[in-house]
Amino acid sequence: MPVTLDADAAAVYKAFQEAGRPAYETLTPAEARAYYLAARLVTNPEPPPLADVRDLGIPAPHGAIPARLYRPHPVRLVGGLAPALVFFHGGGWVIGNLESHDVVCRTLAQAGELIVISIDYRLAPEHKFPAAVDDAVTATQWVADSAASLGIDATRLSVGGDSAGGNLAAVVAISARDGQGPALAGQVLIYPATDFAMAHPSHSEPETSVLLTHSVIRWFRDHYLTGAADIHDWRASPAKAETLIGLPPAYVLTAGADPLRDEGDEYARRLQEAGVPVTHRNFPGQFHGFFTMGKLLQQANVAANDIGAWLKQTI
C-alpha cells in the first residue's frame, strides 16, 4: 500500500540518512547496543519528573532480572493501591535496556497515572529464545506476587511494550491466560512483532523499509531464534497461538511505514474476532520506532497521551 511519511517523520529519516547512520546488521550486537543507547539523547524528550523511580532485582533461576519502578504523582489509588503496567522494551530482542526506554516509561507512568515497572530481560544472541520470554513471564508473576509491597493493585495489572517488547507482552498475555501467570487487566502492544514467518506484504514493500529495514529484521531474527522451527512456536510468534479467545483488553498501535504494520493490523483484527475488546490506532505517516522519539516527532506524544487515556479507562 502507498505510504507517505508525515513531514516531521520524513525530516527525521533524512537526518538519519545524512548523518551516515550505520545499519545494525553491519555491527556486532555490542556495537549496536551502544549506538542505540546513544541515539536516545537525540530523540528522547526531557524525562518528566516523577514521585519515585527506583531499581529492583527480580529473583529468577539464572539470577536477578534488573527492573525499574516508576511512580508518578498523581497516581490513581483504590484502597491505597495503584494500577500498574509491566513494560518490556523494544530492540529486536538484541538491543535496548532500562536506559533506552527510561523516558518512555516515565511518560507512560505520568500519562496513565499508574506505576510502570520496566523489565531488563536477557538479550540475544548471548541468550537466545526463549530466554526473553522466560524472563518476561517470571517478572510479571513476581510483580503480581509482590503487588502489595510495591503499592500495586494486583487486580489492575497490565503488560505492554514496543516492537520486540510488544511481542513479549502479547506472549505473556497468552501465557497468563493459559495459567502460567496472573490474571491481566490489559495489554499495550506498540507496533508489535507477532509472526516470524514475515510473509505479510509490508515485509517486502520498499516504502516500509525505513530505519527498521527488512534486512535488519532478519538480523534480529537470526540472533534471537535458535532455528527455523522456532518461527512456528507461539512464544516467538504469538499469532501462531491456537486461539486468542479470553485475552485481556488490548491497545494495538501500528505505523504505516513499518515492516511489522500488516502483522500488527492482523493481530488486532484477530483479537477483535476472538471477542477481545480492542482499541487499534494506526499512525499512517510514521515509521517503526517513532514512539520513542517524542523530542522530534509530535505524533509520539500524541500516541503516549492516547495510551495513557486508554490505560485510565481500562485499568
Score class of each variant (00 low, 15 high):
274 A>F: 08
59 P>I: 15
154 A>L: 06
208 T>C: 09
38 A>Q: 10
217 I>V: 15
137 V>A: 15
197 A>T: 15
171 V>Y: 07
300 A>K: 00
197 A>I: 00
225 L>P: 06
99 E>F: 10
65 I>G: 01
172 V>T: 13
260 L>F: 13
21 R>Q: 14
106 R>V: 13
38 A>E: 15
122 R>H: 07
161 G>K: 11
238 P>R: 15
178 D>I: 12
271 L>Y: 04
268 A>L: 14
219 W>K: 01
232 H>Y: 12
299 Q>W: 00
204 S>G: 14
193 A>M: 09
187 Q>P: 04
295 K>F: 00
227 G>K: 01
58 I>W: 14
124 A>W: 00
309 A>L: 14
167 N>H: 02
136 A>S: 15
226 T>W: 00
83 P>S: 14
252 V>F: 09
226 T>K: 11
138 T>M: 08
258 D>P: 09
259 P>M: 08
178 D>V: 08
200 H>D: 13
71 R>M: 03
140 T>Y: 00
272 Q>P: 00
96 G>F: 06
305 N>C: 05
27 L>M: 12
80 G>N: 05
288 H>N: 12
17 Q>T: 13
199 A>I: 05
99 E>Q: 12
275 G>N: 07
81 L>M: 10
195 D>M: 05
131 A>Y: 07
116 V>S: 08
277 P>E: 12
177 R>Q: 06
147 A>W: 13
120 D>T: 05
133 V>P: 06
151 G>K: 00
209 S>G: 04
171 V>R: 12
20 G>Q: 05
295 K>E: 15
169 A>C: 03
9 A>S: 11
143 V>I: 11
185 A>W: 02
298 Q>N: 10
202 S>H: 15
168 L>D: 14
83 P>H: 04
38 A>N: 15
12 V>P: 04
251 Y>F: 14
156 R>L: 14
92 G>K: 03
17 Q>I: 11
38 A>P: 02
107 T>D: 10
268 A>M: 09
226 T>H: 05
27 L>E: 07
40 R>G: 02
122 R>F: 03
164 A>E: 02
32 A>N: 06
171 V>I: 11
72 P>E: 04
150 L>E: 10
223 H>V: 08
154 A>W: 03
104 V>P: 07
40 R>N: 08
154 A>G: 10
183 A>C: 06
252 V>C: 10
54 R>I: 09
219 W>N: 00
5 L>A: 01
313 Q>T: 11
135 D>V: 12
129 F>Q: 02
150 L>K: 03
79 G>C: 11
307 I>W: 11
160 G>P: 06
173 A>T: 13
300 A>M: 03
63 G>H: 07
94 V>R: 01
227 G>Q: 06
211 L>K: 12
292 T>I: 15
195 D>I: 03
111 A>G: 03
108 L>H: 05
223 H>D: 01
32 A>K: 12
315 I>M: 09
5 L>S: 03
220 F>P: 01
202 S>R: 08
165 G>C: 07
306 D>N: 04
198 M>P: 00
145 D>M: 03
146 S>R: 15
